[in-house]
Design a protein around this nucleic acid. Sequence first.
RNA 1: GGGCCAUUAGCUCAGCUGGUUAGAGCGCAUGCUUGAUAAGCAUGAGGUCCCUGGUUCGAACCCAGGAUGGCCCA
Length: 728
Amino acid sequence: MLRQAQHDTDVLRQAQHDTDDADAASTRVTLSLSKGSLSKGSLSKGVSVLIWTTTPWTLPANVAIALRADAAYGLYELDGEGLVLATALAPSALGERFAEATLLATTTGEHLDGLFARHPFLDRDSAIVLADYVDLETGTGAVHTAPGHGADDFETGIKYDLPILNPVNASGHFTDEAGPYAGQFIFKANKQIVEDLRASGRLWRAHEYEHSYPHCWRCHNPVIFRATAQWFIAMDQNRLRARAIESAEAVAYTPEWGETRLKQMLENHPEWCISRQRTWGTPIPALVCTGCGESVLDAHVARNAAKRFAQEGAGVWWSDPVETYLPDGFACPNCGKHAFEKEKNIVDIWFESGVTHFAVLGKDGIPWPSDLVLEGGDQYRGWFRSSLVTAVAVKNAAPYKRVVKNGWVNDEHGRPMSKSKGTGIDAKDAMDKWGADVLRLWAASVEFVDDVRFGPNVVEQVSRVYRNIRNRIRFMLSNLDDFGAADVVSRAEMQPLDTLACSVVDAFVADVKAFYDAYDIHGAYLRIVEFESTMSSLYFDALKDPLYSRAENDARRRSAQSALLYALQRFLTAVAPVLSFTAEEAWQEIPAALRGEEASVFDSSFAAADIDRKALDADLALWEELRSLRSQVAGSPNVRDFEAKVRIAAGSGLHKRLAHLGDNLREALVVSECELVESASIESDAATLEITNADGEKCRRCWKFRHLGSDAEHPSLCGDCAAVVRAL
RNA sequence: GGGCCAUUAGCUCAGCUGGUUAGAGCGCAUGCUUGAUAAGCAUGAGGUCCCUGGUUCGAACCCAGGAUGGCCCA
């Protein structure tokens, strides 16, 4: 099978972005109409079609002229010669001589389809064909068509069953097929061809024309298109394409539109060319019959090669005699002869990466298919597609359960990082500078599915969030200092505020796990930040009073510490995938006796003890009610914290829930006194607050405002504190 | 030129199937605290939700067109 030669996918792709404007000879050439006819009338010199090209070296491969079906074409008489070209382009194409031309007849492209013109210097006809890519912006509306030297031309050649001529060898020199130009380097032949055309009177005009031409992105030399024989995977045989699309539907996608994208790539992908002309790579274990020239790909030969390659490496293909790979009595399926040469093409590296799942998965305890494949968005067309096609061809299933696409990392202004512009940041340098966990947290803080920005300011911002989290962890750890395994209180025995906090922790862990499960790392990040911040402002603040002012072994205090231990461990578990080093460091700081059986945070499980969802939701609702009350108290303009006493008049429903908290309600509001009364005139779930100055004076030990001096020895302490101090 | 995607406070982002004054964290300002202290708490100022039309009682969200940026193609 012939195809449009792709020297290298990357080269071609880059070439489009790397087209240098180059001065090139642009020529208008006339091809005489040889068969069929337009109105010849008195045209002594015959009728020609005027074509236009910037690459005269492709003229030896010309086999057709493409017209646009619906475009108007005119027959112009000039100096006794008939010229056919698009009427819309005649003024620009004929230039100053347009005024002298006489329009003899007009028709549309479709009426000229099937006529033949005569090649300007070779002894053959050039078919007049139709193509929809013919534009009426430049040229003559009659497009020189060389199927061996261009993708569009190739397609047209296939459609019209035209010969695909490639009279250029791999080194860019003309072959014998190019007639008089055989042996010449194509770019040097350009000038000669133009000269010859001029001499033979077939050149209408030549001039310098500035246009863009593809160049190699690496060596910057101009590249050319040559149609050569290649190996393909036939996408439409055995319903391969259709089955691949079906398999793609069974896969999950992050983001979800990835499914559309991947299916689109499968739908539109041309026959998959898997051969390359390189000497470094995995050889295609095919044979070429020296008798008939047929390429032969045989399963037995391929298996012999696979065995040999496994032992010696693929390089032996080049040094082994061909007989090494021939099964006994092997004959050419085409001509029956027995003499072969080895194929010289190698397998495209894209094909090799597309089969890595066979090499890596399904062995050594690693399952096939994989849980997910993660790559940048360019890989919908690349690896996501190639892996899927090879897997479907062999196993009729996708090699992954989910496709996750990530965006690109740009600099702080959203521009691509560039080493030469000094905007590039090396990952290693960033890690040394800011620390691995800050980088991890940054990765979670951005929406990785989209393009993201990275730079000192962005990292600085996230490192402040990191410090916050670290401080919460330190707070929890430091308050477990005097806490032993024997002091741990079971959840059932904890005080109401503490069991409530445990519920909030459970909900948090469950949420974060759900985010991770959905690969929504950013969602997990948001939840973590929100959690650590509200835990700190609501719960930790409330715990300071019991933790600091109660006696070491006081039941209230031990309950709080038990909840803190629980919260800390669950928090570290939840945070470990993102803040791995910090979580493990903190985990190791927990006294071994308290840590339980899990020596490492990575041994701990996300699974929570049986969660009663209904009870949990009730707890969460009450937590929110507490938050609301607390913010009303804390936001009170004149009196705050322990200076205040609060009188809460609550409706029956809320009253019942708050009453259950006992003195924990006062703690949660961080005030010295809290009075709760039920009010029939208030809606069941509502409350009104009355915040006034607390009675008494500030106790020097617990800071609460109380009546001091009940213990004569400690006149500046409240009764509770005096009792604690006495017991020391 | 085509397909897909993105665009919400200074920054990083939430806003489910359209429904009261668009939210969070960080930053910023102000106050409190000084027993998490190179910490903690509170309050506040910041938004024509890219633009223009349309549908609707009602649009950040739906539709059409456009702008800017990205990816893949032609």
